[in-house]
Nucleic acid binder design. Sequence first.
DNA 1: ATCGAACCTCCAAT
DNA 2: AATTGGAGGTTCG
Length: 287
Amino acid sequence: MIEIQCDTYDLKETLYSGQAFRWIELSQCLEQNITVHQSVISGHRVNLWESVGTIYASCPTLDNRQLKELSYSYLRLDDDMSRIYQTFDSDQYISTAISKYKGLHILRQDPWECLVTFICSANNNIPRIRQLVDKLCENCGEMKIDSKGKYYCFPSPAQIAEFGESNLRKLGLGFRAKYVYGSSVRLLTEDIDLFQFRNDSYQQSLDMLIGFPGVGDKVANCVLLFSMDKLDAFPVDVWIKRVLRESYLSGSKEKVTDSRLREWAQSKFGIYAGYANQYLFHRRRLD
DNA sequence: ATCGAACCTCCAAT
DNA sequence: AATTGGAGGTTCG
């Protein structure tokens, strides 16, 4: 087990804010009123929990140094929240969201898993996305066994490609099956390394992602923000459209395309537009 | 370039 | 109890 001091982190809000879909709450530790969250990161089963300014992590298959490194990266503990919050000082709506959900973070996920899960998110709701991702892992991901029992890794492009489109349909992916399959094949045949795009520009990475089947501006921006270190990415979904119309465009009914709206928001909110997005989304969805 | 409609599936609300 | 509407969107005409 490791512990990390961090006074500005809201683990629960972050893990269940709709950016990652494989976290579950373990029912235990009732005597201390602490909830343990579990998921699979980089092929390892990881437990996370928090208590008064400290985040704890445990993992049966990593040593403490590795676990600390993985946690830091995944949870984006390197983000300077006071600096990020500072850029939204003059924004009333976001400032309120920050005070209510202080410590809500963006995650740094695996780009491939992020890409597939957000392809699955198209025209879908969160419980169903979680269900699809679970089935995907259980049916074509590698099964591993650690000291706590068995668990499933997120499937590689090769594993999904081999599983096949028709089997993906049988899992319930529907029209998304073609896209998930097509993206897997594309990644394989073109031998693309998605991690490499963490070092490329926003625009370059966006263009690359848009090239994948089932990936439009919204999904691409989710992948850029939640896995490729593009904190200026700004996914425009129905909730964001609502909040922008209601609280920033004063109910203007002028027709604007989603990508235009995205560009407008990016120039308004700046280099941390993605964090603005997360707080806008979170407050509008939960308030 | 831009605009609707269609798309799989599931489930909650008629 | 059967039917309809809609869900973090993308593609196709």
